Amino acid sequence: MQALRITKPGLAEIAEIDVPVPAQGEVAIDVAYVGYCGSDLTSYRGLNPLVSYPRVPGHEIAGTVAAVGSGVDGLSVGQSVTVIPYFNCGQCKACRGGKPNACANNQTMGVQREGAMTGRVVVPAGKVLPVYGMALRDLALIEPCAVGFHAVRRAAVTNGETVLVLGCGMIGLGIIMGALRAGATVIAADLSPGKLETAKALGAAHVLEGGPGLGDRLRALVPEGPDVVIEAVGAEATFLQAVDLVASTGRVVYVGYAKAPIAYDTKVFLTKELDIRGSRNALPVDFQAVIEWLSAHPGAGDLVVSETVSLEDAPRALEAWHQAPGDFTKVMVKLGGA
């Protein structure tokens, strides 16, 4: 079968790979849609230190069950499903503590192991989530939104709080949805007018142009600063802005990660008595929360999907995203299972 394969930085091509067969406890899934993730873009750019080449990318998955191995219960051929694409060791401190999303030995599909940008994948049955009553394409939005929902849970957002979201890419939009679900007033900041329009359409109360002057624009809305700032860019400027802009005794959560060390004035950590937290991947509870939210807001997918392309056109779309990242929020690749 055909697959998209990143063979080296800057080169993605269509290749032939073997069709997998499910073993005991495994499920074969005919892939219908896969969303391009920011990690796929960094792999294409040669900036993902976790990736070796060649690599089939893709871990935002929508598909249908094609076959089940022996010992699998609760799943049947033809069911619409998505996949929890993180593979944890089950033995490290994070796994033992009930946080497999932060596994020290984690392997994510499309990053440390082969991904889903192909016709069929086989995964353990425990990684498969059946989804009912949603458009098949939108199942591929569940995983990236779940990363945002997890960040909101890490921030312990409560009803009535104000949340500033720095960055309105797909993860940032997931954060917006998760914060709205928690009852927060959301302020979204980004450099892209188009992404701010999407954030507003999803329910952000205010949208602000990022960059220099953001602090003044924000203080005009919330003079004491927001209760929570969630950073979803992964840039030095926004890492520093997060602690500068958050209210005294507020919480900062980082989802993006900067590619180089950052120098902080650590005095502000103490004078504001801040809670500063990281957020990684997502847990099954986050996936289920997203499924509930997207089921109740069926128009959200149309707001965030920028383009849908065929597998044959996927290399071109990846290069276009590389050249103009601000022009795209979510690129979907449609495969044979659609």
Rank of each mutant, 00 (worst) to 15 (best):
Tyr33Val: 09
Val34Arg: 04
Gly35Cys: 00
Gly35Ala: 07
Gly35Trp: 00
Cys37Pro: 01
Cys37Thr: 07
Cys37Ala: 09
Gly38His: 13
Gly38Ile: 11
Gly38Thr: 11
Gly38Asn: 05
Gly38Phe: 10
Gly38Leu: 07
Asp40Ser: 09
Asp40Pro: 04
Asp40Phe: 10
Leu41Asp: 04
Leu41Ser: 12
Thr42Ala: 13
Thr42Arg: 14
Thr42Val: 15
Ser43Ala: 15
Ser43Cys: 09
Ser43Leu: 09
Arg45Gln: 14
Gly46His: 09
Gly46Lys: 08
Gly46Tyr: 09
Leu47Lys: 15
Leu47Met: 15
Leu47His: 15
Leu47Thr: 14
Asn48Glu: 01
Asn48Gln: 04
Asn48Val: 03
Asn48Arg: 07
Pro49Val: 01
Pro49Glu: 00
Pro49Asp: 00
Leu50Gln: 13
Ser52Tyr: 10
Ser52Met: 12
Ser52Leu: 12
Pro54His: 11
Pro54Tyr: 11
Val56Glu: 04
Val56Ile: 15
Val56Trp: 10
Val56Asp: 04
Gly58Ile: 07
His59Lys: 14
His59Pro: 09
His59Ala: 13
His59Arg: 14
Glu60Val: 10
Glu60Lys: 06
Glu60Arg: 08
Glu60Trp: 08
Glu60His: 07
Ile61Val: 15
Ile61Met: 08
Ile61Ala: 07
Ala62Glu: 00
Ala62Val: 03
Val65Cys: 03
Ala67Phe: 11
Val68Lys: 02
Val68Tyr: 03
Gly69Tyr: 08
Gly69Ala: 07
Gly69His: 07
Ser70Ile: 12
Ser70Cys: 10
Gly71Arg: 02
Gly71Cys: 00
Val72Glu: 00
Val72Arg: 02
Val72Ile: 04
Val72Cys: 02
Asp73Phe: 11
Gly74Pro: 03
Gly74Asn: 05
Gly74Phe: 08
Leu75Ser: 11
Ser76Met: 12
Ser76Ile: 12
Val77Ser: 10
Val77His: 11
Gly78Thr: 10
Gly78Phe: 10
Gln79Leu: 07
Gln79Ile: 04
Gln79Ser: 04
Gln79Val: 05
Ser80Asp: 06
Ser80Trp: 03
Ser80Val: 05
Ser80Cys: 08
Val81Asp: 00
Val81Arg: 01
Val83Pro: 01
Ile84Glu: 05
Ile84Val: 13
Pro85Arg: 12
Pro85Ser: 13
Tyr86Cys: 14
Tyr86Gly: 15
Tyr86Ile: 15
Phe87Gln: 04
Phe87Val: 09
Asn88Glu: 08
Cys89Glu: 02
Cys89Leu: 05
Gly90Met: 09
Gln91Thr: 15
Cys92Tyr: 10
Lys93Ala: 14
Lys93Thr: 13
Lys93Val: 13
Lys93Phe: 13
